[in-house]
């Protein structure tokens, strides 16, 4: 699972008001090279919750993202490269996602988070 997907995911357990962001318990992180596309990054930048994104990348062991970012930084190639790397090239292979409110763990195995809810959580 990429951080792109992590940034979109929130916990939808019944009664949870703010299920975002899910905390990452990283077990194994892999990197896969993907071609960079500036347009896509600019398009996604407005949708990304930056604070959650930086926290997530730090918990995956990548610390080169700035704490604050605004759209003017998108002109810098260096920033774009880092953004691209963290967004699309880092994969959480094994580990878990943890709901910030209830502490419920969603295990991640082989890169696939198990988001199935128990019957009493729907």
């Amino acid at each position: 699972m990429r951080l792109l997907t992590h940034n979109m995911l929130s916990s939808n357990i019944r009664g949870v008001v703010n299920g975002f962001p899910l905390r990452i318990e990283a077990g194994k992180v892999v990197e896969k090279n993907v071609e960079i596309n500036g347009d896509f990054l600019k398009n996604m930048f407005v949708k990304i919750d930056w604070k959650a994104f930086v926290e997530a990348s730090q918990s995956m062991g990548y610390t080169e993202l700035p704490e604050e970012a605004d759209s003017s930084m998108l002109d810098s190639d260096e920033f774009l490269n880092r953004f691209h790397h963290a967004l699309l090239e880092l994969h959480l292979e094994e580990g878990a996602l943890v709901c910030p409110e209830t502490g419920r763990r969603f295990p991640v195995s082989k890169g696939i988070p198990n988001m199935l809810l128990h019957e009493d959580e729907v």
């Binding site: 940034n7 979109m8 995911l9 929130s10 939808n12 949708k47 988070p113 988001m115 199935l116 809810l117």
Partner: peptide
Amino acid sequence: GDLLLSDMGQGLGLRPGVI
């Protein structure tokens, strides 16, 4: 693409307005 094991009948756990 990224894959999720999820049941659509339980609702999609996604942030508003991102897709």
